[in-house]
Design a protein around this nucleic acid. Structure first.
Lengths: 196, 196
DNA sequence: CTATATCGATACCAATCGGTACATATATAG
DNA sequence: CTATATATGTACCGATTGGTATCGATATAG
């Protein structure tokens, strides 16, 4: 057993609360006052448990990617064919982006698309994470090419970039108020561009 | 002639400087210190000429939409056919988003996708402006349907939303470092979804 | 000339920003 | 019990935020 006074709040629950704040208002748009209020803890507890605002954001982002929308997107890629994987990915993203339980849009897109100089490293981390998602999709498409369920003349990198562009655009659309049905139609139109 | 001491700076030139700052760092990410330094004027002059930060942003946004990228996008829609208009629009956007003279990305997408409560009205204004752009495209497609150069079973609203989603996704891609050629390939793939 | 009106520079405002010092409370280890 | 270690709450820090009061300088109107 650990020594000292035990903390009185649940770290993961508090992290989920922080995630929702960052998700809705972005990194710079979320103040320490907003965060501590939503998390139900006071400032020194936050700093003791999470280090600082930047580390808190990174931990919230990891949670978002590991157990939240990120996990659902990875699962989509496990469909047996590339076409099915992409279709499920697009439908999945459309659904997640318009989940009434969550803020509209995607944290890794809206978290810090622009920011002041002080938050540049957060912006770059989000760029990196989005790029990683795109590369995972590219690899799935390359595998599909080897397995023969993607046309031999298809360009996995270009296709992955195209699909990523769609999902990122959907995030902007969702933030602007687009409905789930709107985004489903966008997904359908995107699939018409499928090679072969 | 006007009474009083004449101002020593050019309003439009200062507005362009402010536009670049907002374009690069977004509304909240741009501080008054950043703005006055870039504009080469001091704070009271800025307030005398533009009112406050919010009005300055709106004027910069108007300039962006009237005489900057917004104008180029409107021109694209004047092509004789819907297909040509959309093709030119996508190429135009890809070019604008990666113009080495300008910040990467689109002001109306990146200006305030997320923000604190204080900037909510700016966020809503940007949502409205993006929606206006989408409606202009929809109307162009409806006209095309009447003129017979768009398939009768095509859905102008859905198509306009799809194209807007692409251009907004491109903005995110550009902010993440995508090259002009990358975005051209995205435009090409999007056009494969063209109806008919 | 004087009167008026606006500009620009300094210096300042209250509020908020992210982050902490410190004292107190509460647990375990011995 | 005492000693130790950690958590919590208050109250605070310097820096920065958007926004102004004030004053001297510079123009036109008469």
């Amino acid at each position: 057993m650990l020594k000292g006074r035990p903390r009185e709040f649940d770290v993961d629950a508090a992290l989920d609360k922080a995630l929702h704040v960052f998700w809705k208002h972005g990194y710079e748009g979320s103040s320490l006052a907003d965060l501590t209020e939503a998390m139900g803890i006071n400032r020194p507890s936050l700093y003791a448990a999470f280090g600082n605002k930047e580390e808190l954001f990174r931990r919230a982002l990891n949670r978002y990617l590991d157990k939240g929308p990120g996990a659902a997107k990875r699962e989509a890629l496990e469909e047996p064919t590339a076409r099915a994987a992409v279709e499920r990915l697009l439908k999945c993203v459309a659904t997640l982006l318009t989940d009434p339980c969550n803020p509209r849009g995607c944290l890794s897109v809206q978290g810090a698309l622009t920011c002041g100089e002080a938050s540049e490293s957060i912006k770059q981390e989000l760029n990196r994470r989005r790029s990683e998602g795109e590369q995972a999709l590219r690899q799935r498409l390359e595998r599909a090419k080897v397995e023969g369920d993607l046309a031999p003349d298809a360009d996995p990198a270009a296709l992955a970039r195209f699909i990523s562009t769609i999902t990122q655009g959907m995030s902007v659309q969702a933030a602007g108020g687009a409905s789930r049905e709107d985004l489903f139609r966008v997904a359908d139109m995107a699939l018409r561009a499928w090679p072969g």
